[in-house]
């Protein structure tokens, strides 16, 4: 039982990253009907931006130039990383995708792959191949509930991730911009004809998605403090699967699918040899898709699919 609960805690943290990254995929897919394959690398960029902000703020306060407590540095790091990374996301949309808005979808898909590779190798060129250690912003405290080990960072990561997801859900459900996003996801051929500005909505979804990926990047750095330029690839494609599984444009579905991904990873490795991790979890997802081809909360669509 203790082992089970411990693994639930492990899976909640692990699933938060998938859920946060998957939301970015899902929104862009919902609004523009394209897969931003560079999104995993945006997560990497967010993590590196967080690394530089945190390292900078920590050395500034060590020098006595600013005096900030650890939690303030943490909050600043998260907010600044989200802000700066959302600019990167908007830039990617402006440079990479907008010129190809009316091109075949396959061209947009390879654009994503290319931007991803440019981000990875650009990072490799600028910062070198050495791993970076994400600094310890707040001291990690380990405490035990029965036989279940918890750390303050783990709890922080899960709770803040959930709060961010709830905030996004509220934004999409209860604001005018959110309504525009939902409308685009409903029918992106007719809705722009009604006067919804496609370019603004596209920039907004890329910015929001990138900000979420940056939050995931900073949290990832806190939990797994070894950063490398290729860290986003596997997360990218696993979160992409979660985004499709959740259903096009559905926040709740994507979050559930992201956590499901995390639980599958952890529990398959618990009860089977870990080499079977991807084999078993993807087989399960394949079965789910057979019965729910549009994902958990996706609606059927036909004419809009312009592949």
């Amino acid at each position: 039982m203790d082992t089970f609960l411990q693994n639930v805690v492990n899976a909640l943290q692990w699933g938060s990253f998938y859920a946060l990254i998957a939301l970015g995929y899902s929104m862009v897919y919902g609004v523009l009907m394209l897969f931003n394959f560079a999104h995993g690398d945006i997560f990497m960029v967010g993590s590196y931006i967080g690394f530089f902000i945190a390292t900078g703020l920590i050395s500034l306060s060590a020098l006595g130039i600013i005096s900030l407590p650890g939690w303030a540095i943490l909050v600043l790091t998260i907010l600044l990383a989200m802000l700066l990374t959302s600019f990167v996301g908007v830039l990617v949309e402006r440079i990479g995708y907008r010129p190809l808005r009316d091109a075949p979808r396959a061209s947009a898909a390879i654009t994503g792959l290319m931007i991803g590779i440019i981000l990875e190798t650009g990072n490799l060129y600028l910062l070198g191949a050495s791993r970076r250690k994400f600094p310890e912003i707040i001291e990690t405290n380990i405490f035990k509930l029965g036989n279940v080990s918890l750390t303050n960072t783990k709890i922080f990561i899960v709770i803040i991730s959930l709060l961010i997801m709830i905030a996004l859900h509220q934004f999409i459900q209860h604001t005018k911009w959110g309504m525009a996003i939902r409308a685009m996801a409903y029918d992106f051929v007719v809705v722009p004809l009604m006067g919804v500005p496609v370019n603004a909505i596209a920039a907004l979804t890329f910015g929001l998605g990138s900000a979420l990926a940056a939050a995931a990047g900073v949290f990832y750095g806190m939990a797994y403090p070894v950063l490398d330029p290729y860290m986003g690839i596997e997360y990218g494609w696993k979160s992409f699967v979660a985004a499709i599984l959740g259903g096009r444009g559905s926040v709740i579905g994507t979050v559930i699918a992201g956590f499901l991904m995390g639980f599958l990873d952890i529990f398959v490795a618990t009860y089977f040899p870990s080499t079977m991790r991807n084999l078993i979890s993807f087989s399960i997802i394949l079965v789910i898709l057979t019965f729910r081809p549009h994902g958990f909360f996706g609606r059927a669509y036909s004419a809009q699919l312009r592949l």
């Binding site: 797994y224 070894v226 870990s274």
Partner: peptide, 19 residues
């Protein structure tokens, strides 16, 4: 216990090792 290259989360395996 084993894992595969590029894995970064070992919590499931380490929980088993602890137990």
């Amino acid at each position: 216990e084993s894992f595969t290259t590029k894995d970064t989360d070992f919590s499931a395996q380490l929980t088993k090792i602890r137990e």
